[in-house]
């Protein structure tokens, strides 16, 4: 959990037991208050969404909205079960996830390779603009370009995903390279360890956490771009379903599709990837903590 430095115990003269007791009590009350506010926020947001959001939007819009346009959370949940019952959801998820896996897998490899190549000044100059463009340009342009060139072929989305996400991996890798233990590399060089071996034994282990960060951030962008490509150039997947329901003005279906995938992606991003990271890099965190 987010441990903030709550235990500012300022009783050095008091006996030891009470000190610990005080600290524990402070932590407990902090925890309860945090959870109280957290749960309250969930209740408040869901209540506003269910009962008052329509009025807020009507106010922003300057004219009343059709209540059908903004279904509350209860309706979204019931629509979710409806769609789930139809059995179209797993197929759409599968299509989107396959696309993400292929596109982002390739993108990760390419991005990491470019990041490693950028060790040399020459290649850094060569790829500098590519990275800058990929980071600063909206993903939409790659989506539209690949859609108009490749049509519905699966190659289009793959290229769009690569172009939007490779730079994140590259940046993380080259950041990792900047933080490489220079002395170790220098020593390896002076003992004439081959480039290959140097990379494998020093660079890669050191880079692993950076690669992982790149993976996490890259994934968070990749799934968004994938959904966007599906809106334009696909006949299956989450983006396609979103597009259809938006065109039909079926807001409850629209919200269901996007929220379902949103929660799924968030789960992958926050729970699965973070758990893996924590597990494999525990040794590293222990090192940085000291």
């Amino acid at each position: 959990m987010t441990t903030t430095d709550t235990t500012t115990v300022e009783t050095p003269s008091a006996p030891r037991v009470t000190e610990e007791e005080l600290a524990r009590r402070a932590r407990r009350s902090e925890l309860t208050s945090r959870w109280f506010w957290r749960i309250l926020s969930y209740i408040a947001v869901l209540a506003i969404w269910e009962f008052a959001l329509l009025d807020i939007f009507s106010f922003l819009r300057g004219s009343p909205l059709d209540p059908k346009l903004l279904p509350g959370p209860s309706e979204v949940v019931s629509t979710f079960f409806e769609i789930w019952g139809e059995g179209t959801m797993p197929a759409a998820f599968q299509a989107t996830l396959t696309r993400i896996a292929v596109g982002f897998g390739l993108s990760f490899l390419i991005g990491a390779m470019i990041g490693i190549l950028m060790q040399s000044k020459w290649f850094e100059g060569f790829f500098k603009d590519a990275v800058l463009i990929s980071l600063s340009a909206p993903g939409l342009i790659w989506v539209l370009i690949t859609a108009i060139i490749f049509g519905n072929r699966p190659l289009g989305p793959t290229i769009a995903i690569i172009l939007t996400t490779f730079a994140l991996v590259t940046v993380n890798v080259s950041e990792g390279i900047k933080a490489l233990p220079k002395d170790l590399l220098d020593m390896a060089k002076s003992f004439r360890v081959s480039v290959f071996k140097r990379n494998r034994q020093i660079v890669i282990p050191h880079l692993a956490p950076y690669l992982f960060t790149g993976l996490r951030f890259g994934f968070s962008i990749a799934w968004k771009v994938t959904v966007l490509t599906e809106v334009f150039s696909s006949s299956e997947g989450i983006g396609f379903e979103m597009r259809i329901s938006a065109v039909l003005f079926d807001m409850s279906e629209f919200l269901t599709w996007i929220l379902a995938f949103f929660f799924f992606a968030l789960f992958l991003e926050k729970v699965v990837l973070e758990a893996i990271e924590r597990r494999y890099f525990r040794w590293r965190q222990a090192v940085t903590a000291t």
Partner: peptide
């Protein structure tokens, strides 16, 4: 701290939401 606990999860949720979802949603509403 209380405000942070109240808003943190929702900030993260909005952060992770794709712009596409906002765009389609707002285009339908407005």
């Amino acid at each position: 701290r209380a405000t942070n606990a109240f808003c943190h999860d929702w900030t993260m949720a909005i952060l992770a939401m794709p712009a596409l979802a906002w765009a389609l949603f707002n285009s339908i509403i407005f």
